[in-house]
Design a protein around this nucleic acid. Structure first.
Lengths: 157, 157
DNA sequence: TGCAAATAGTTAGCAAGCTACATATGAGAT
DNA sequence: ATCTCATATGTAGCTTGCTAACTATTTGCA
């Protein structure tokens, strides 16, 4: 048990590193789009609307991997900013279709540009292969996380 | 510009994947330690105290890579739970030394165990090499993020 | 037809994270 | 000795994210 191969220093630090770097990314992004009145979460939502057109709230929650109430509040904010509108869906009076407003179009176009540039800058000195590996690792991890979410083992105590 | 090598689908998705997986990790962890009245952030803080002994608040902020006010509130919560105490530092009446309470020792020991198990479970099917690569990628990214934070280029508009 | 269960969205309440600003104390220079 | 600047912590206020519990529809089946 002294040198358990499953317990390298790497493994010990990885999960922390992951959540810290995710947080830092969000903070940087928030700072960049702040003067436009946006945040990472709002930008992600707007981008989806731009790229996939009007979308139902439930679908948004699925795609953005957020809980429904989180989406509700993001939309409340964006609606107040006049960037999106909730439209009635005919055939289902429960549902709402979310769409970008005319007024938001330029902002969102600019945002898309900004994000593309940021991406290039941040990932500039990372090799494609390494990125692919990292991507795979994250995907695996998420898979395990979701498996555990469904069947939490011993942590029930 | 049609097939810009700097703009693969991987690159397009990576930053989102990172922040999403970080979030999911946090959510899972929070759910696991919830019945103990803990969260990921609080656990990280307690773990540091256990492994490095009593620490000043400023030092905690540095080590955990959190802003000072965030640490203040984590400590407020943990103090209310009776898990940590803020002690005076003699020689500097501004400073406070944060220490785990006697009462918290068993909780924290248990927590350490729990985290070790979780780590093994989550990373079980990931090769050491891949993990190392992923780790390097994250480190690089954080480096870029911090460089940009200091010198935000074109995003000044 | 009419009632039960599923689905769409919302409300309430909590913790974490940030920025901006405030307070108290210490240290260094004149 | 004092005055200024730096350091250590704290307060206020905002957004994101979650879970739990609610309302309004719709759907499916008896």
């Amino acid at each position: 048990m002294a040198t358990d191969p499953a317990e390298s220093a790497l493994r010990a630090a990885f999960l922390t590193d992951l959540s810290v770097s995710g947080r830092k990314l969000r903070t940087l992004f928030d700072a960049i789009v702040r003067k436009r009145g946006l945040t990472l979460a709002r930008a992600r939502l707007l981008l989806h609307l731009r790229q996939h057109g009007a979308t139902r709230q439930g679908e948004l929650a699925l795609v953005l991997e957020l809980e429904h109430p989180t989406v509700v509040r993001l939309l409340d904010g964006l609606e107040k900013q006049g960037l999106i509108a909730r439209h009635a869906v005919d055939g289902d009076r429960r549902a709402k279709l979310v769409a970008i407003t005319e007024a938001a179009a330029p902002t969102v176009a600019e945002l898309e540009q900004l994000i593309a540039e940021l991406r290039v800058e941040l990932l500039a000195d990372i090799a494609e292969d390494d990125l692919a590996t990292a991507s795979r690792v994250l995907a695996r991890l998420v898979q395990s996380i979701e498996a555990m979410g469904a069947a939490p083992r011993s942590h029930e105590r």
